[in-house]
Design a protein around this nucleic acid. Structure first.
Lengths: 197, 197
DNA sequence: TCCAAATCTAGAACGTGTTTCAATCATACC
DNA sequence: GGTATGATTGAAACACGTTCTAGATTTGGA
């Protein structure tokens, strides 16, 4: 579960890394993507600018790594409980609804992390992949419900990927201020209905 | 068909606007998003930097407007011919395949325009909306085939939107170098199969 | 034709992501 | 303890999007 980068290095280095990511989340939560300024992150984390760049080679790496840490938390928590709902549609919509509500409560943070995710290039592929895995794990868990033993079929996985794509597009519309939070829920509902029938 | 902004102003102004958009496309085609530098666009279009900003308030506006112009061309052309294929699935995949192939031939241009599209905020909503309409028009046309008279149902429109979302996500993966062009076609095929059954 | 207003130009200047560098500090090994 | 190696610091510098300004040019109406 814990990846190499999170445990590598001395105690002091792990502490620095944690302070940097904490400062990133705090700044993002307060003011969104634009407020996550590298000098501000360095100051708040009590490291020099050069050190920040030694840990994270770009603002995008920094934000996507922070996103990965948050997603890890969310997915770990979701894994502990069965998802309520009688049908796959209900269960998937429940997970997406809970997630969307959580994101709505921290719109600036969501904006910062989503923008970084969308802008990330190939050099961030590993972190992106981690986030994608967590998301598909959450949705797959919802489709299967309590039937833990059931192995997801190829069809299931394809559906989950499409749902993830629609979710990302909807989120993009929301964080860029072009659609409302209800629109996100609505388009997810339509997509899930079309796919899980 | 022609919007206000495209025909407004004097001849000289329309010429300037055209030169600016031409320079934008040329730079994007040659070097992608990063190569579209505002000073370079202004130089190549033979206008002052301040004039460029008077015509387009930001780099994102500039690129999204250029994308709109390209899409307008593509959609106008697609409207002239019936889409080959016997089923909606075949026709949609044909349109998406042709489009993906065209994008592959100009990867830098695609990268520049897609990145701008993804980064655009609410202030670019009008231009974004135009692009979205052109895309859904193309896909709807493909679903209906030669049956021009048929009015698209709500279900059709919902399906088209989901396809558009998946397409955008796939494109994002491709332009950021995380997936291959075949992956784009493959995920489109899976999504279309799931939706048009 | 002439004038006022709008537009255009050239260039300086600012903010923020990123790079670089010399000096200092910490760590591991002898 | 002493030292080599690497990490950290502080600060300067650069790149590019964006803003601003003062003067030249164009335009549209009297």
């Amino acid at each position: 579960m814990t990846s190499t980068t999170e445990t590598a290095g001395s105690n002091a280095q792990r502490e620095r890394r944690r302070r940097i990511l904490d400062a990133t989340i705090a700044l993002a939560d307060a003011g969104g993507f634009d407020a996550v300024q590298m000098r501000a992150v360095a100051d708040n984390a009590d490291v020099a600018l050069g050190t920040l760049y030694r840990y994270f080679p770009s603002k995008i790496h920094l934000l996507v790594t922070a996103l990965g840490r948050e997603f890890e938390r969310a997915e770990a928590q979701s894994r502990t409980r069965a998802v309520p709902g009688d049908t796959p549609h209900e269960r998937v919509m429940h997970v997406l609804g809970v997630t969307t509500t959580a994101l709505q409560k921290q719109p600036q943070l969501t904006e910062a992390l989503t923008r970084a995710f969308m802008f990330a290039d190939a050099s961030v592929a590993d972190e992106i992949h981690l986030v994608g895995m967590k998301l598909t794990a959450m949705i797959t868990h919802a489709i299967d419900g309590t039937d833990e033993a059931r192995e997801p079929t190829d069809e299931d996985m394809a559906i989950v990927r499409v749902i993830g794509d629609v979710w990302l597009s909807a989120l993009m519309g929301w964080v860029t201020g072009r659609t409302s939070a209800e629109d996100v829920t609505k388009s997810m509902d339509v997509a899930v209905r079309l796919l899980l029938r």
